[in-house]
């Protein structure tokens, strides 16, 4: 526990603690605002009445000078004071001169990439370090073109866009923020898992045998041709297995959601969703069933 305190109070880790507090606070705040709005709507108020509920009697628009300019000025002063105090209280870390011959254990990427480094436990570098970051950036950019629900533009609501918000919160809170925190606070020497009360022992060895998917479930050597085809089938079937079941339901095909979305948008959305969901699925397979690779080929492993 003593060492855990040392880790979270390390100068470079303090921002992560601050981020965690802010993310929790703003999640609470946006939920509070959304629930307030949803309640007002349930009582039969219009969108505008629900959003502007507290402003009855005030003009809807205000002059930027002085109202907004004053606020910007105050925030700028506040941020400056905060940065000054932070910089007086805590010194930026500076370790010894770079030395390619002395590898620290653990070696960690900058903190905001630790979520990706954490995924290296579950995926090879070409997926965790190259493919997934690109899918994340492209997927984020695609959001406005996939989520064509016209409701919930410009105000907080949960009830009017439950799907979009749950997918985003899952990705942001669990697959990004939580992974960054795990990578920072729970991963010690050898990138082994350490609970807060455990000492980061550099000599710790964890006996763990991970075996490939086809060995585990079919008793087929993953390096054999048969193992190759089993792995290929498992990976190739994952996407249709996520994407197509809803399409088989006539009620889904007739639904307003699907009608508006159209087949192309739906397939883009579903394939991005399948990629996103593959991450926790592989993590669960690895953690609970000790599965190493799903698909082993001579060029790459998945």
């Amino acid at each position: 526990m003593h060492q855990f305190w040392e880790i979270i109070s390390k100068a470079d880790n303090v921002p992560i603690v601050i981020m965690l507090v802010l993310v929790c606070f703003f999640t609470w705040l946006s939920f509070r605002e959304a629930l307030k709005y949803d309640r007002a709507r349930a009582e039969g108020k219009t969108v505008k009445q629900a959003v502007y509920a507290e402003e009855a009697g005030f003009p809807e628009r205000v002059a930027v000078w002085p109202h907004l300019v004053r606020q910007e000025f105050l925030v700028a002063i506040g941020v400056t004071i905060f940065l000054m105090l932070w910089s007086i209280a805590l010194d930026a870390p500076l370790e010894e001169l770079a030395n390619p011959n002395v590898t620290p254990n653990p070696s960690k990427a900058p903190w905001y990439f630790l979520g990706l480094q954490e995924l290296l436990v579950y995926f090879d570098p070409w997926i965790a370090g190259v493919m997934l970051p690109n899918v994340i950036v492209v997927g984020l950019m695609a959001i406005p073109y996939i989520d064509i629900n016209p409701k919930g533009s410009g105000y907080y609501t949960l009830r009017e866009r439950p799907l979009a918000i749950s997918i985003f919160l899952f990705g942001f809170l669990f697959l990004w923020v939580l992974m960054v925190c795990i990578g920072t606070f729970a991963r010690g020497p050898g990138w082994l898992w350490f609970w807060p009360w455990q000492h980061w022992d550099v000599h710790r060895v964890v006996a763990e045998t991970n075996i490939d998917f086809s060995d585990k479930f079919f008793g087929v050597d993953s390096a054999s041709p048969m193992g190759f085809w089993i792995g290929l089938a498992a990976v190739a079937l994952w996407f249709p297995a996520v994407m197509f079941p809803p399409l088989l339901l006539p009620s889904f095909r007739r639904s307003e959601f699907f009608q508006r979305l159209g087949i192309v948008r739906y397939l883009v959305f579903a394939s991005l969703l399948a990629t996103m969901l593959a991450t926790p699925v592989k993590m669960i397979l690895r953690i609970f069933l000790h599965v190493k690779y799903i698909w082993v080929t001579e060029w790459f492993n998945v």
């Binding site: 470079d12 921002p15 601050i18 981020m19 802010l22 993310v23 703003f26 946006s30 959304a34 941020v79 940065l83 000054m84 932070w86 910089s87 007086i88 805590l90 010194d91 930026a92 903190w111 905001y112 984020l140 959001i143 406005p144 989520d147 629900n149 016209p150 409701k151 919930g152 533009s153 410009g154 105000y155 907080y156 609501t157 866009r161 979009a164 918000i165 985003f168 942001f172």
Partner: peptide, 29 residues
């Protein structure tokens, strides 16, 4: 110190900005 902490703070604030813009659906047409 100010340069380093402002840099970390900017990474955090830009994430939170994205979070807010998503939660208010402000990316919509």
């Amino acid at each position: 110190n100010m340069h380093r902490w402002a840099a970390h703070a900017m990474v955090i604030s830009v994430w939170l900005h994205m979070y807010r813009v998503f939660m208010t659906g402000s990316y919509k047409p």
